[in-house]
Write a protein that binds this DNA or RNA. Structure first.
Length: 405
DNA sequence: CGTCCACAGGAATGACGGGCGG
DNA sequence: CCGCCCGTCATTCCTGTGGACG
């Protein structure tokens, strides 16, 4: 290829990009962590949270609060919104209270969640090495010494409890005498509506002194939300109402999930920009739906541990040769065979069974337990992805590559 | 109606790499 | 440097089970 041709291609890309600039006005407003100033249809919830947290302004401890609602119902946005408002007031009035936000699924473990809290109040904690109770007592000690007042928001708190039980929450909610005259209030945000039942009675009464439910958005409401976002982020006349309506309809019909809806709009807009179009229409939205799904899958595939990858591949092969009878037993045989080829030692049936359920929860396969009566009880394995998708995602992995041919 | 298949999936335990305080 | 504790991954051992077959 000559330099001239290169230049032509580059020119084309740049001029497309320049045209595309007509589409976006402010990219930020479509990002998933963007907190808009205006939260439509959430006034009742906002007032409730405000009332619950108001005692802070008099220096007293607000009730613990539990917030429920499915994903994308505005729980996080509403909470963050209130917190920024409160922080503004607090600074103005010189009230000393700390707000700490953390997402339990992001931080991952009990330990790291606590470490997050610790570092936010100015306590440096090694990222591993200490006993959890040690971290906790250090936090309590510091809070007592400095009579620190803090509100600790734990997002996706259900994740924490499912994985580790409610002991940490118990310790956190029952530490008030150990840190007085400071205090620690908890705000738990849960996607799981049945979350409360996982808690023991002692934690339940403490944590959910107040409760708040965020209902899903209707398609109508999603449309309004999307329109507001589009006005913030896109140029007027750069998008069709059909595109907006389709985004709302696609995400609304599932769970009233505003985050998904906004994601969809962003991806669609980026798609339109990349192709140099200056009008975002419903065609882009339809492509975006597929792209989001693809990205999610290939991302999950690439970060899989090596044995999980092999198990997944074995599942695909087994289902390919005999879709009707693809069971954990067959997959395990195939898996051992593949392991031999790579020279890896194969894991136990028990472990592979566990990996299969993990792949199921990731949505990469479906592993349904079925009974063949006299012929035993198995997981029926059904891959949710194609061999091509898998091989494309695995081709950067040296150990995996020569398992295809 | 009991048997018995082919596993599921819980519990206990261990190996390992990492990081602490002393 | 030691002894200890962490999270993660894996093994071992185990009990449980729906329903077709005899």
């Amino acid at each position: 290829m000559t330099t001239n041709q290169n230049d032509e291609i580059l020119d084309a890309i740049f001029s497309k990009a320049l045209q595309g600039r007509k589409l976006f006005q402010n990219h930020e407003a479509l990002r998933s962590d963007f907190v808009p100033h205006h939260l439509p249809f959430r006034n009742p919830q906002l007032t409730s949270i405000g009332q619950i947290l108001a005692p802070i302004l008099h220096g007293s401890k607000p009730s613990n609060l539990l917030i429920y609602g499915k994903t994308g119902t505005g729980k996080t946005a509403a909470t963050k919104h209130i917190i920024t408002k409160l922080v503004e007031t607090i600074i103005k009035k010189h009230i000393d209270t700390k707000f700490v936000y953390c997402n339990a699924r992001m931080t991952g473990t009990e330990y790291r969640t606590l470490a997050e809290l610790a570092s936010a109040i100015g306590l440096t904690i090694p990222f591993t090495g200490l006993a959890i109770t040690e971290v906790l007592s250090r936090i309590q000690q510091l809070m007592k010494q400095t009579s620190l007042r803090a509100v600790f928001v734990i997002d996706e708190i259900d994740y924490l409890v499912t994985a580790y039980g409610d002991d940490l929450l118990y310790d956190l909610t029952s530490s008030s005498d150990k840190i007085s005259p400071g205090f620690l209030s908890l705000i738990g945000i849960s996607n799981d509506l049945q979350f409360k039942e996982q808690l023991g009675a002692r934690v339940q009464s403490r944590l959910s002194e107040e409760e708040l439910v965020f209902p899903p958005y209707s398609v109508e409401e999603l449309r309004t939300i999307l329109n507001e976002r589009a006005q913030l982020s896109l140029n007027p006349n750069a998008y069709t109402t059909a595109a907006i309506n389709l985004c709302a309809a696609l995400s609304g019909s599932e769970h009233g999930d505003a985050r998904r809806a906004v994601d969809l709009l962003r991806v669609a807009a980026e798609l339109a920009e990349r192709e140099g179009s200056n009008l975002l229409d419903d065609r882009h939205v339809r492509i975006a739906v597929q792209k989001i799904d693809q990205d999610r899958v290939s991302d999950a595939l690439r970060t899989l541990p090596i044995h999980a990858k092999i198990v997944l591949l074995a599942s695909i092969y087994s289902a390919h040769t005999d879709p009707a009878r693809a069971s954990s037993g067959l997959v395990y045989d195939k898996y051992c065979e593949l392991c031999k080829k790579t020279g890896l030692e194969s894991l136990t049936t028990r472990r592979v069974s566990g990996l299969l359920t993990e792949l199921d929860t990731l949505g990469l396969i479906t592993a349904a337990v079925v009974n063949y009566g006299r012929y035993g009880r198995t997981k029926k394995i059904n891959p949710e992805i194609t061999l091509e998708t898998a091989s494309k995602a695995f081709e950067s992995d040296d150990a995996m590559r020569h398992l295809f041919h």
